Amino acid sequence: MSLPLSFLDLCQIESGSTSATALRNAVELAQVAERLGYTRYWFAEHHNTIGLASGSPEIMIAHVAAHTRTIRVGAGGVMLPNHAPLRVAEAFRLLEALHPGRIDLGLGRAPGTDTLTAFALRRSEEALRVDQYPQLLAELLAFDGRSFPEDHPFRAIEVTPADVRLPPIWLLGSSAFSAQLAAEVGLAYSFAAHINFGAAIPAMRMYRERFQPSEYRQSPHAILAVGVVVGETNEHARELLKIVEIGMAALAAGRPSRMPTFEEAQRIELSPLDLQRAQPLLQNVIFGDAETVAGRMRELAEESQADEIMVTTFLPNQADRLRAVEQLARVWGLQPEA
């Protein structure tokens, strides 16, 4: 039996298109993923990036959950240092009350943006200099479990809505830091191999080896998130990869933009410097036809001891996104809804 398969949506905006179109596409893709048997559909938090349509995962979660029936919808993730833990607790308890048993809360340590934008979000130089993530996580869990010490001023605060708990919590990471923290605290874990492919296997294994049971989880659960480009053939996938190459080169050069269309990408010639800049990021992408990509995913799942695979694609075109979701579901062996 194949591992569960899920999808991470970055809500890319294709060159010449609009954010409204990208967000409608996200709803359609989530509905298709649900019908095909995907387990979860997550949204990421990014800021000051003109090529992405969503900087607020909780809004997308509420919208997409209202337009689906069974698939779990969540954040992959909320960048916790950008937010007050009380505010996160309120938002995700409310989502859990609206859609009981269907919400996931993924938490990230990075800002999801550049330093200046992070400062605009956090309004504090100290918040930029000091890594407060473990303390912020502890505060969030204390709000949810009403476990502040008796002399703590926050003990008197009641998180609303008060009659639900937070949904399942996942710590997200692209290094060993969050793997270690998730294991110590006893939470689920998701590794972003689409950001740091090379570190996936040791981090995932370390999480499983060091996991300590908690009130949140009695056993480890690890998701491996991978970036894919799925073509009709391996050669087609290589042609599609040119789109990602252009976008990665722009990102590495500090000039993020909307991903080009397929036709635009074939006309663009990158400079040797841009090609060099893009290569480290392209190494995080699995590309090929669906059978090739799924085969590599199975290998990685076994090597990393993953409990679940989550795919994302950097391609912005809806037809390419639908191909990835539909063809991977078929070769992975998902069971569509009756």
Results as ranks from 00 to 15, higher is better:
residue 92 F to W: 06
residue 92 F to R: 02
residue 297 M to K: 02
residue 229 V to E: 06
residue 218 Q to I: 12
residue 261 T to C: 09
residue 48 N to P: 04
residue 163 D to Y: 08
residue 12 Q to L: 00
residue 112 G to T: 06
residue 335 Q to V: 15
residue 217 R to L: 14
residue 9 D to M: 08
residue 43 F to Y: 10
residue 324 A to H: 13
residue 51 G to D: 00
residue 288 G to M: 11
residue 80 L to R: 01
residue 22 A to H: 00
residue 24 R to W: 04
residue 106 G to P: 03
residue 159 V to K: 11
residue 39 T to C: 08
residue 171 L to D: 13
residue 246 I to S: 00
residue 295 G to D: 02
residue 246 I to D: 00
residue 68 T to F: 02
residue 61 I to N: 01
residue 27 V to D: 00
residue 112 G to I: 03
residue 142 A to Q: 15
residue 253 A to V: 04
residue 241 L to R: 04
residue 110 A to T: 10
residue 22 A to E: 00
residue 322 L to T: 15
residue 302 E to L: 10
residue 250 A to G: 05
residue 329 A to L: 13
residue 192 A to K: 15
residue 287 F to D: 11
residue 330 R to Q: 10
residue 164 V to Q: 07
residue 212 Q to C: 05
residue 157 I to W: 02
residue 51 G to A: 03
residue 251 L to Y: 13
residue 127 A to D: 05
residue 197 F to L: 07
residue 249 A to F: 02
residue 151 D to K: 09
residue 273 L to E: 15
residue 323 R to F: 03
residue 283 Q to N: 12
residue 66 A to G: 13
residue 77 G to M: 03
residue 282 L to N: 03
residue 38 Y to T: 12
residue 251 L to C: 05
residue 165 R to L: 11
residue 82 N to I: 08
residue 40 R to A: 09
residue 145 G to K: 03
residue 129 R to S: 13
residue 48 N to K: 11
residue 22 A to L: 00
residue 76 G to L: 02
residue 11 C to I: 00
residue 310 M to T: 14
residue 277 R to G: 03
residue 21 T to D: 00
residue 114 D to Y: 09
residue 166 L to S: 13
residue 128 L to R: 13
residue 302 E to I: 12
residue 233 T to V: 11
residue 79 M to V: 13
residue 74 G to N: 10
residue 298 R to W: 12
residue 280 P to H: 07
residue 264 E to T: 01
residue 301 A to G: 15
residue 133 Y to M: 11
residue 223 I to F: 05
residue 58 E to G: 14
residue 236 H to E: 01
residue 330 R to I: 07
residue 292 T to R: 08
residue 50 I to S: 02
residue 238 R to E: 15
residue 127 A to C: 05
residue 37 G to P: 03
residue 323 R to C: 09
residue 129 R to V: 05
residue 63 H to K: 09
residue 39 T to K: 15
residue 242 K to L: 04
residue 147 S to K: 09
residue 322 L to G: 07
